[in-house]
């Protein structure tokens, strides 16, 4: 087992024919992901990477019966793209695009919640189940099928955690980047639930960063609901207050959301802390006693 995506995932790509859509679709197909087609308004009827292109998600759904969509369209069009996909009946949407206005995301979040749609991202590397399906921009080759579930707010930081768990032989059940925006489609808690229920997952790595209180909320949830060991690393221990560190969500505002607060809370709730970026893998080994 795994979470969210697997061999049976039938994927369409929104923004299929653009440069990002093309590059990452090629890589995903090469990885073995079942991309059945794509959507680019105005390019319906053509073929791209050997797959059919449609003008709208509705048409693609009609013809291809996909069960997931990945979005590479520019930020200013993402609100419409996500909502279109959700209304067309797609139940899993992964949005890679960064820079979506926060108020657009407020609207999107409400709509997808009403429709019971799962959105991963935006501003994220996507989701991968190693050896089965890659819905995102992560390098496939550092992953390995295995037993660790990884959840993260950051792209390249996720790759570090993946690489370290691969090098030590654990591999990953699935890896999810939930994104660095203030209003993400899915939270740490949503993913913790899925990993807790997943047989293949033995331990969970939660990679957090400064800003907001998603890690604190996750800690509380873990204490009460997660029986599997959770290992966490929090980035931004040296970040100053009031300065936004790249991600729209990564800012220490009003003295809240510091790495220190998050680490203390996580520890208090029984989470194992990797105190250094380079020791995530070894902390997993220590906790699993291997």
């Amino acid at each position: 087992m795994s979470i969210l995506v697997n061999k049976d995932t039938k994927l369409i790509v929104q923004g299929f024919t653009g440069s990002q859509g093309t590059l990452h679709s090629e890589q995903s197909i090469e990885y073995g992901t079942n991309i059945v087609g794509g959507v680019t308004p105005g390019k319906g009827g053509m073929e791209h990477l050997g797959k059919p292109v449609f003008n709208s998600v509705y048409e693609a759904v009609e013809e291809l019966d996909p069960n997931a969509s990945i979005i590479f369209v520019p930020a200013k069009f993402c609100k419409e793209s996500i909502i279109e996909s959700a209304e067309a009946g797609i139940k899993l949407i992964v949005c890679i695009t960064e820079g979506i206005p926060t108020l657009d995301m407020l609207e999107v979040k409400k709509r997808i919640d009403d429709l019971g749609v799962r959105l991963i991202g935006p501003n994220c590397p996507g989701v991968i189940t190693p050896g089965e399906a890659k819905l995102g921009i992560m390098p496939g080759n550092i992953h390995k099928p295995g037993s660790i579930g990884i959840i993260s707010r950051s792209g390249t930081l996720t790759y570090e955690a993946v690489k370290q768990t691969t090098d030590l032989g654990f591999g990953q059940s699935s890896c999810v980047g939930i994104g660095g925006d203030p209003i993400p489609g899915s939270s740490f808690i949503d993913m913790l639930k899925l990993f807790e229920d997943d047989d293949q997952t033995e331990a969970i790595v939660l990679v957090g960063e400064i800003g907001g209180n998603a890690e604190e909320a996750a800690a509380e949830y873990i204490k009460n609901n997660v029986t599997k060991p959770v290992i966490s690393y929090i980035a931004g221990q040296t970040a100053p207050a009031g300065k936004r560190m790249g991600h729209a969500g990564a800012i220490i505002a009003g003295g809240k959301g510091t790495a220190k607060d998050k680490i203390e809370k996580l520890k208090e709730c029984g989470v194992h802390i990797a105190d250094n970026l380079v020791s995530i893998g070894s902390k997993v080994a220590e906790v699993l006693q291997r």
């Binding site: 792209g155 930081l157 960063e209 980035a235 790249g246 380079v278």
Partner: peptide, 12 residues
Amino acid sequence: NGAGLAMGTMDT
């Protein structure tokens, strides 16, 4: 490359 890794590098 990457905001999270940039913070992680500073911490390291």
